[in-house]
Amino acid sequence: MIRTSLAAGAMFLALCGTASAADNAALKKCMDGANTTADMVSCNVKEAKVQDTRLNKAYKTALAAQKGARKQQLQDVQRLWIKYRDANCAFAGSVTGGTIDQVNGTGCVLDMTQTRAQELENLVGP
């Protein structure tokens, strides 16, 4: 029973960790060619760097658009978000004790970073 639950949980996290592949052509192409766990981790890390660059650009733009106390609020929120993302993804990346955890952890960082970049972009519009 416990093994079944762990296996189901690992599969769920694995699917969540790569869920953004459906919406991301570069990630999908990389994952389609990935034959090993290390290859999948590499795909996630590579795309997470792309999304981190996007996030940083969106953050700078959003920060510049804020006035008064909202500027400080955004800085505080972003610092808290980074701590949350890192803790959340460390947790997601330690479920089974197996190599799939690496895929889950890096996929979590990718997904959360991509989502946050979109949120920041939405603060100021196109």
Results as ranks from 00 to 15, higher is better:
A26F: 04
Q72H: 08
Q102N: 14
V45A: 11
V95H: 14
E47R: 12
L120P: 02
A117V: 02
Q75I: 15
L74A: 05
N104G: 02
A65M: 04
E47L: 15
I2S: 09
D32Q: 14
G68Y: 04
L123I: 05
N24P: 01
E119T: 09
V103T: 08
N104I: 09
T96H: 06
A8S: 05
T61M: 04
Q51L: 08
T37G: 12
G98L: 10
V41T: 12
A8V: 03
K28N: 12
R85T: 03
L6A: 03
Q73L: 13
N35D: 13
V41Y: 06
T53C: 00
R3E: 12
V45S: 04
S5Y: 05
R70W: 10
L15Y: 08
C43Q: 02
A69T: 10
A58P: 00
P126D: 00
D23Y: 04
C43H: 03
K28W: 02
V95N: 07
T36A: 09
G9D: 03
G93D: 01
L6H: 05
R3G: 05
A87C: 00
G125F: 07
D101V: 04
K46M: 11
G98N: 08
A8G: 02
N56E: 09
K67V: 11
Q51R: 14
L13R: 15
A34H: 09
V41L: 05
R54W: 07
L120D: 07
N35E: 12
N24V: 04
M11Y: 08
L55F: 13
V103E: 00
A87G: 06
Q102P: 00
D111N: 15
Q75G: 01
D32W: 01
G17K: 13
Q75K: 15
D23N: 10
A34L: 06
R79Q: 14
N122I: 00
Q118Y: 06
W81A: 02
E119V: 09
G125P: 01
G125R: 06
A64C: 01
S94W: 10
N88W: 11
T4E: 06
V95D: 00
T53Y: 01
T36N: 09
M112I: 15
K28D: 13
D52M: 06
E121I: 02
G68T: 03
T18W: 03
S42V: 02
N44M: 15
R79P: 00
G33V: 05
G9P: 00
G33N: 10
K83A: 10
L15A: 11
C89Y: 13
